[in-house]
């Protein structure tokens, strides 16, 4: 099997959750859900997963599969009100989307332009402010572009490390922006002053290409490695168990 870019992204997302141990993995959106379920079936069997609504599931179902009594074992109840308890408890790693991310790891899903009269109203801040000061947070960007990676986000929904430090220990103690995975590369925020740092570029992508697709600078330490290819086992799990219909290609087209 030849891995596609979507498969590489799924494995990179899985790697972001590999060392989490026994905590609630909360993926928002398609590729994060695929990556987290892949991680649960390969690298981290202790991850706690939900059906995206109100149930903890003992094993990960295929993408968008309706709950099945034969296949899915329910291991707990996680209605929205209890999600807020887990966020405050801290045993959670969320991977959110991001309409904008900046060099300091701040994220925006609220509005584009001036908040008082936005050029484009988005979702609203959702749980991003609370997530980022309470539990590990990563971001997924399916279309890496200068409009997404910006010098400064228009609205800070998700709080990056510099803003958290400036707000004091209440914000900074548990602030943990872990990975930003895009269709081109993987960043963390371990650059100087906790800014974006390029960890790896996906096979077939150059550092130059990432630079051109980014509207902000980022740190590059020496030779940037390639994001690893998925293993044979991972490819089988992706293509035969979790996403046999190839829904991932709607988000990251095969090239």
């Amino acid at each position: 099997m030849t891995p596609t870019r979507a498969d590489v992204c799924a494995a990179a997302i899985a790697d972001a959750f590999a060392d989490d141990g026994e905590l609630f993995a909360s993926p928002m959106g398609l590729l994060p859900t695929l990556g987290v379920r892949l991680c649960r079936l390969t690298q981290n069997p202790d991850l706690v997963l939900s059906d995206g609504e109100a149930l903890f599931l003992a094993s990960p179902p295929p993408l968008f599969a309706p709950l099945s009594a034969e296949r899915d074992v329910v291991e707990g109840w996680i209605p929205f009100r209890k999600v807020f308890d887990v966020i405050a408890y801290g045993k959670r790693h969320v991977m959110m989307g991001a309409t904008q991310v900046d060099r300091h790891g701040n994220q925006n899903i609220s509005a584009i332009g001036d908040f008082d009269r936005p050029k484009r109203q988005l979702l609203g801040s959702r749980g991003a402010p609370g997530n980022t000061v309470n539990n590990r947070t990563s971001y997924w960007v399916p279309k890496h572009s200068p409009r997404v990676f910006v010098e400064q986000v228009d609205v800070v929904s998700g709080v990056g490390p510099a803003r958290a430090r400036a707000a004091g220990p209440g914000a900074a103690t548990y602030n943990d922006i872990h990975r930003i995975v895009s269709n081109l590369c993987v960043f963390d925020v371990q650059g100087e002053d906790h800014t974006l740092r390029l960890r790896s570029v996906h096979p077939g992508v150059s550092v130059e290409e990432v630079r051109e697709a980014s509207g902000c600078g980022f740190q590059v330490d020496g030779d940037v490695p390639e994001t690893r290819l998925p293993t044979e086992e991972e490819l089988v799990v992706i293509t035969e168990v979790l996403d046999p219909k190839g829904l991932r290609f709607k988000e990251v087209p095969d090239q």
Binding site: F80, R81, F84, I87, A88, S110, F115, S125, R126, G127, A128, P129, G130, T132, V133, N134, V155, V156, S157, G158, V159, R163, A164, A166, A167, G168, G170, A171, Y174, N175
Partner: peptide, 28 residues
């Protein structure tokens, strides 16, 4: 923030003027 929203309702339900939480710190 969603959690602040719940906490605000809890404060009102408990007839308190406010409740403390982390969510919101550092954000817009």
């Amino acid at each position: 923030d969603e959690g602040m929203f719940m906490t605000g309702l809890q404060a009102a339900a408990q007839r308190l003027p406010f409740l403390p939480m982390r969510a919101g710190l550092g954000s817009d």
